[in-house]
Design a protein around this nucleic acid. Structure first.
Length: 639
RNA sequence: GGGGCGGUAGUUAAGUUGGUUAUAACGCCGGCCUGUCACGCCGGAGGUCGCGGGUUCGAGCCCCGUCCGCCCCGCCA
């Protein structure tokens, strides 16, 4: 449907006029076909330089752009490596020049000819701009419909994402994508080489696994052989890699796909790739070492950057206190300051009534950029975060004499003002921004505000900075919205040994031997030391409110395995897609995943997911309920 | 589940208070052109204004609903 009109305009009119010419050209094409493809290309479209002048070369690629001057036709020939200008002319080769008149964008062709120096006509904007190829043989491997958008990295030709996703194979032809996927391939290669050299076995685990409750929502796969039963797509190889340790494999890694049926984001896809690692006789440091080595190899070989090692470590508590985040962006300051103690009984009801009062102190040189209007916008910003958890933003401008300019200034006792100003590290001209609320709200909102100001004031100095960070000692448990204790990481995470006895009496303070690898505010990996002692595991299940029967039903096979001499072990999983995104400088995960899904989980190219046929469903003994808002016809496909 | 931005020619966009034949650029088609490199010049074709309903003498524009894309919160390590 979509190309009918275009092909008509292209084909119909000239077909009659040019029929004899075309017949002749077909003969020429078929004659060339045998030779060029057969003999193969001699170079890529990136290689030729002045050194190659006078050589006879063969290039294969796509018509990137065509400039027809009548007596001269210039074609920019593009392959995955680069672009080379090739030129046709009657004085170079009469028939080939005539043949080249039919070339259009994205035709896939092969050319042969002589490399010539462009002399004064060189193009300094092209790496191959010093030369061109004078073509004496052209082979059109295949023609192309007019592409729906121009294959280019030029911002001025930017196309809507839905169109690009529908023609993903064309979008991927752009030079920037070609580069990203070349980089991604190198990341995979360097990862395999580095970890293999360190003695890790690359082993595979199943994708179709037993459903385990908790954590992310699973995709389900119905079993035909067991009607009414389902596999789950693995949300991670977690349990299997632990069983590898029980099996005595000692060190394992895998570059593997994981599946999670949760809502999508810029940096979250329903299927994504992890570098999954586990090792026996592990301590956190024995996990960090190889991972730092891996990161070092990636950054060194791909970006030419030598990362300072070891990476800094920060406890979860300190990360939260100072940055309000368990994945702080360490490239700039603007840390959180605690004014809770200083503002006790200060007279301002909002502060007095809050369990936690903390804030950011914007230094004088940036504070000037925040007028009343801007502050109102910041207030709106914080009110909208976390489903509107924060009730407002309190701001104070510190005047030259240290006095306060703030809507509520006269409510606050003078001695409290001084104490708060001091606690915030403010000086004359500073702007203090406070959130007074529950501990969690204060920190999450200030974290969001901190990142917002980072972007607003461009607080990250220009130039690539890579601030890796290990965040350690996460809480072992957290409370869900029903007040139940649940695992922060997963139930096999080991508590710090000295906290084992606190698990039942004071679960909230127990810290886990769990850690995240953070880079510039992005979580790029996370892992833990696992529990290998059944008495400790039993206490965790008790703390989680899991009965023996429940635990056996859910994880019986693992508990059984752990009765046979499990080694102490631990590991980590790194997000390969996110790492690729950061190394490539991409803004979205979609830029480093070849065939991504949209935010609603669809593949716009294939149109999936699609309703299943009745016979398929019948075979699986599946019948779905009436669809929301529909008649139950399964009508939910793309429109 | 919630908030925000967007959807007009193949593509990117403009479109006034609701008013006659919906504009432009790029692309496409035809012609010309031997040094372009975002080639240039002349001519031409191309529209279900996302979809459905409503208000109106009249809707791209106003109202209601709905679909799709992106960003964010919840959710998710």
């Amino acid at each position: 449907m979509r190309n009918t009109r275009r092909s008509l305009t292209r084909e119909s009119a000239p077909e009659t006029v040019r029929a004899p010419f075309r017949a002749k050209r077909r003969l020429l094409e078929s004659a060339a076909m045998a030779s060029l493809l057969e003999s193969g290309r001699t170079h890529t479209c990136q290689q030729l330089r002045r050194d190659h002048v006078d050589e006879r070369v063969t290039l294969f690629g796509w018509v990137h752009r065509r400039r027809d001057h009548g007596g001269r036709i210039f074609v920019d020939l593009r392959d995955r490596e680069g672009i080379t200008q090739v030129v046709f002319g009657p004085d170079i080769h009469q028939d080939t020049h005539a043949q080249a008149e039919s070339l259009r964008s994205e035709f896939c062709i092969g050319i042969a000819g002589k490399v010539v120096d462009r002399g004064d006509n060189e193009n300094p904007n092209m790496e191959t701009g010093g030369i061109e190829v004078e073509v004496d043989a052209l082979e059109i491997f295949s023609a192309s419909d007019t592409p729906p958008f121009t294959i280019s990295d030029d911002d001025r030709l930017e196309t809507n994402e839905n169109v690009r996703l529908r023609y993903r194979y064309l979008d991927l032809r752009r030079p920037s994508f070609q580069r990203n996927f070349a980089t991604r391939a190198r990341i995979s290669y360097i990862t395999r080489r580095t970890l293999a050299d360190l003695g890790f076995y690359e082993l595979e685990t199943p994708y179709m696994v037993k459903y385990t409750p908790g954590g992310a929502r699973n995709f389900l796969v119905p079993s035909r052989l067991h009607p009414g039963s389902f596999y789950a797509l693995a949300e991670s190889p977690q349990i299997y890699k632990q069983l590898f340790m029980v099996a005595g494999f000692d060190k394992y890694f895998q570059i593997t796909r994981c599946f999670r049926d949760e809502d999508l984001r810029n940096d979250r896809q329903p299927e994504f790739t992890q570098i999954d690692v586990e090792l026996s006789f592990a301590t956190p440091e024995r996990v960090f070492g190889p991972m730092e080595q891996l990161m070092g190899a990636l950054w060194s070989e791909i970006l030419g950057t030598e990362l300072p090692r070891p990476f800094p470590r920060l406890s979860w508590q300190e990360a939260m206190d100072r940055f309000g985040s368990d994945k702080p962006d360490m490239r700039f300051g603007l840390e959180l300051h605690d004014a809770t103690a200083a503002s006790r009984d200060c007279g301002f009801r909002v502060f007095d009534g809050a369990p936690c009062v903390k804030g950011l102190c914007v230094p004088p040189d940036q504070a000037g950029g925040l007028g009343r209007n801007q502050l109102d916008k910041l207030t709106d910003f914080v009110k909208k975060r976390e489903n509107g958890a924060a009730k407002g933003l309190a701001w104070v401008r510190v005047a030259k004499d240290g006095s306060w300019e703030a809507p509520f200034a006269k409510n606050v006792k003078p001695e409290a003002k001084a104490a708060i100003t001091e606690a915030m590290g403010a000086e004359p001209g500073s702007l203090m921004l406070f959130i007074a609320d529950e501990w969690e709200t204060v920190h999450t909102v200030l974290c969001a505000l901190r990142l917002h100001l980072r972007d607003r004031f461009e607080l990250v100095p220009p130039g690539a900075q890579w601030r890796f960070l290990w965040v350690t000692d996460f809480p072992l448990f957290e409370q869900n919205d029903k007040g139940q204790w649940v695992s922060s990481h997963h139930p096999f995470t080991s508590p710090r040994p000295e906290h084992v006895d606190l698990m039942l009496s004071d679960p909230g303070v127990v810290r886990a031997q769990a850690y995240d690898l953070v880079l510039n505010g992005n979580e790029i990996g996370g892992g833990s030391i696992r529990i290998h002692r059944s008495d400790v595991q039993a206490k965790v299940f008790t703390a989680l409110g899991l009965s023996d029967e429940d635990a056996r039903a859910k994880f019986g096979f693992l508990l059984d395995a752990f009765r046979y001499g499990p080694p102490p072990h631990g590991g980590i999983a790194l997000g390969l897609d996110r790492i690729a995104m950061l190394i490539c400088g991409a803004e979205s995960l979609r830029d480093v995943i070849a065939f991504p899904k949209t935010q609603r989980g669809q593949d716009l190219m294939t149109g999936c997911p699609t309703p299943a046929d009745d016979p398929q469903l019948e075979e699986l003994y599946i019948r779905h309920r009436p669809l929301p808002g529909g008649e139950g016809t399964g009508e939910s496909g793309a429109g």
